[in-house]
Simulated scan of single mutants.
Amino acid sequence: MTARIVLISHAATTALQRAAFPMDEPLTDQALRRLTTARPLFSPPAATTTTPRTPTTAGRPPRTADEGTVTTNGEQGASKSDGREAPALEEAAALGPSARKVLCGPSQRCLQTAAGLRLEAEPVEALRDWDAGRWAGRTLADVQAEHPEDVLAWLTDPASAPHGGESLLALLDRVTAWLATLHDAGRTLAVTHPAVIRAAVVHALDAPPQAFWKIDVPPLAQVTLTSNGRRWHLRLSAP
């Protein structure tokens, strides 16, 4: 069976605006409004309409890392929402009602994004964000001013975790292990974090770890991966 996964990056947060490593935090008010624009694309047929799951904070981890630029947990080049999310989500929307699995990260921002898109998503621990350890809640500029050598190691050595959280190699291994469970899973839709999506792309392309820093994933971006049962491929959508 050919598998297909559509990965959707959660909507924008205050950490993105602050260029900070966040703790678990909600979406911004503007991001919640953007979700109402994209929501109709994900509405299932009338005959199968279901009540969306209300996002909760139960069981979420105390800290996660988030999106941004190279100044926010390495989310290089990510920018604020410009209102063009709906067209970018068309393929994910087409998959949404027919997906065999609808998953999301356990963080508040992923749960809110899924609920805002009217998706009944199952929280999955493997889709949690990159753990920034002691840097959570701080801007990269502040950390770099105090510990420039630690930041340099974090950006250049995939095995390094100077913040005491998760190294890049550990993140890549976690995402690779999760993808390995889905080769025969049919169609899957997953709302997750930019770092998780970037790790999935690195794995699909069999790229070196440093390629992670060259991938930009803005809020509500979507990436499609397909599997022939043995390996994953990056799929680009036609206009």
Rank of each mutant, 00 (worst) to 15 (best):
Met1Pro: 14
Val6Leu: 14
Leu7Arg: 02
Leu7Met: 14
Leu7Pro: 08
His10Pro: 07
Thr14Asn: 08
Pro22Trp: 03
Met23Gln: 14
Glu25Leu: 07
Asp29Val: 13
Ala31Tyr: 03
Leu35Val: 08
Leu35Trp: 02
Ala38His: 03
Phe42Trp: 07
Thr50Asn: 08
Thr51Asp: 08
Arg53Met: 13
Arg53Gln: 11
Thr54Leu: 08
Thr56Pro: 02
Ala58Gly: 02
Thr64Val: 13
Val70Trp: 12
Thr72Ser: 14
Gly77Phe: 08
Gly77Tyr: 00
Gly77Val: 10
Asp82Trp: 04
Ala86Trp: 09
Ala88Glu: 12
Ala94Met: 12
Gly96Val: 01
Gly96Thr: 02
Gly96Cys: 12
Pro97Glu: 07
Ser98Arg: 15
Gln112Cys: 04
Ala114Glu: 07
Gly116Asp: 08
Glu122Leu: 14
Glu125His: 13
Asp129Val: 05
Trp130Ser: 00
Ala132Asn: 06
Gly133Phe: 01
Ala136Phe: 00
Gly137Cys: 10
Leu140Ala: 09
Asp142Lys: 07
Glu146Leu: 14
Glu146Gln: 15
Pro148Tyr: 07
Val151Met: 01
Leu152Pro: 00
Ala153Ile: 02
Ala159Lys: 00
Ala161Thr: 01
Ala161Cys: 01
Pro162Glu: 02
His163Phe: 03
Arg174Gln: 13
Ala177Asp: 15
Thr181Cys: 08
His183Gln: 08
Val191Tyr: 04
His193Glu: 13
Pro194Thr: 04
Ala199Gln: 02
Ala200Ile: 10
His203Asn: 13
Ala207Ile: 06
Ala207Asn: 05
Pro208Gln: 04
Trp213Pro: 01
Lys214Cys: 10
Val223Trp: 09
Leu225Met: 09
Thr226Ala: 15
Asn228Leu: 05
Ser237Glu: 14
Ala238Leu: 12
